[in-house]
């Protein structure tokens, strides 16, 4: 993996790398990629790509409400409990630094 590829990958993951880390990680990640490279040697002609490890299909749910949302205090998912998990809450909104 060259330096440019590494920096692109890091920025996609919102990681900031320092100069020293770039050289070290470049080498480490290149080794990991080499390891996975083995798989490309396998003959997969005519095989359908595996998208899921289990063969199960068609897990759907009926279109019904969970009634989580009516401030029912007995419900673990009630809004007050959920809002308590926000770092900063104002007027029932979660508040974060302006991202515009």
């Amino acid at each position: 993996m060259n330096k440019e590829e590494l920096l692109t990958t890091a920025s996609l993951a919102l990681l900031e790398l320092e100069e020293g880390e770039v050289d070290r990680l470049g080498e480490e990640i290149a080794r990991m990629l080499d390891y996975f490279e083995m798989m490309t040697k396998l003959d997969v002609d005519g095989l359908e790509p595996t998208t899921h490890a289990f063969q199960k299909t068609n897990r759907l749910r009926a279109d019904v409400l969970n009634n989580n949302n009516n401030n029912n205090i007995n419900n673990a998912f009630n809004r007050n409990l959920i809002m308590e998990n926000g770092n900063d809450v104002e007027d029932d909104f979660f508040v974060i630094p302006n991202v515009l």
Binding site: V64, L65, N66, N68, N69, R79, D91, D92, F93
Partner: peptide
């Protein structure tokens, strides 16, 4: 199963 509704109070239809 949260309600899909427009115009409710903020963060009422969440889980």
């Amino acid at each position: 199963g949260c309600k899909a509704n427009y115009g409710d109070e903020p963060n009422t239809n969440v889980c």
